[in-house]
């Protein structure tokens, strides 16, 4: 191929790659969510167990008052480091409705078991809205995955949650808040129904670690990411094994191919 045609192809390929990068990038109007370093980032990332336990405390003491987490079960907490007995105790603290009625045909409540899903704070959407000024606090089971930035290499859900926790302030002079709303720099439209949920020492961590807003935000962001994506550690671990195997296999296959083709080339 001639130099000119090679350059043309290379230029087109480069433009194509740029186009693809653009495709993957989020359309304009984004909120400049700053990206943090997370323990679960990268090819070898994993969840920091301390952050997870702190995060669970933040969820159960602050967030669970309004936010459900319907897809998570108490038994999942064993992955964070709770023993089965501790998990049973955490579950037993709540009263949940039994699946079947009693022999008189009435539904009744019983203490929670490890196999139960996390109890929701409200029985249905209407009750949740009524208690929250018409706004529906979203379920947190997949919050971290659903709030990720679109595209490749952008911010992830943890970055968004962390930023949101830090984003509360008095509104600037030219912004008029609608009734019941709060100003948040990182929320789309800047008016969010949720009042600031976390401040310094909103919780007292069980292990005595300082509970600054920053630590609490980091903890809840990590915990919510774990809730959304508990397969992360197994996935990256399996990925490493798969990639190593595939590299070895591809090298072998290449050598075999060259050997077979030697006389033809």
């Amino acid at each position: 191929m001639s130099v000119g045609s090679a350059i043309l192809k290379l230029a087109t390929a480069a433009l194509g790659v740029a186009a693809v990068a653009f495709i993957m990038a989020e359309p304009g109007g984004h909120l400049d969510i700053p990206q943090q370093k997370w323990s679960f980032d990268g090819f070898f990332g994993s969840y920091d167990r301390t952050d997870l336990r702190h995060g669970f405390q933040v969820y159960s003491e602050v967030c669970s008052g309004c936010h459900s987490m319907n897809l998570e079960s108490y038994r999942n907490l064993e992955e964070i480091g709770f023993t089965p007995d501790e998990v049973a105790a955490i579950a037993a603290k709540v009263q949940v409705q039994n699946e079947d009625p009693n022999d008189q045909g009435e539904m009744f409540e019983r203490p929670g078991k490890a196999s139960d899903h996390f109890k929701a704070p409200f029985p249905n959407e209407q009750a949740a809205r009524a208690a929250n000024n018409g706004a529906l606090p979203p379920d947190m089971s997949l919050l971290a995955k659903s709030r990720a930035g679109k595209g490749f290499g952008g911010y992830n859900g943890a970055d968004y949650i962390y930023a949101l926790m830090h984003g509360y302030s008095e509104p600037p002079a030219d912004v008029k808040l609608n009734p019941g709303m709060n100003y948040n720099k990182y929320f789309k439209g800047h008016q969010i129904g949720m009042p600031q949920p976390l401040q310094d020492n909103s919780v007292t961590f069980a292990d005595g670690a300082p509970a600054t807003l920053d630590e609490e935000a980091k903890a809840i962001a990590t915990f919510l990411t774990w809730v959304s994506e508990s397969n992360l550690e197994q996935r990256k671990h399996t990925g490493l094994k798969a990639m190593l195997f595939l590299v070895a296999f591809t090298l072998l296959a290449y050598a075999a191919k060259r050997k077979v083709w030697k006389h033809v080339h």
Binding site: F245, L246, A248, F249, L252, A253, A255, A256, K259
Partner: peptide, 19 residues
Amino acid sequence: RREFLYLMTASAGAFGVAS
């Protein structure tokens, strides 16, 4: 050597399929 290479590749492939 050639047969060994093919055998290695085929075995690696079989291992991959099993996994």
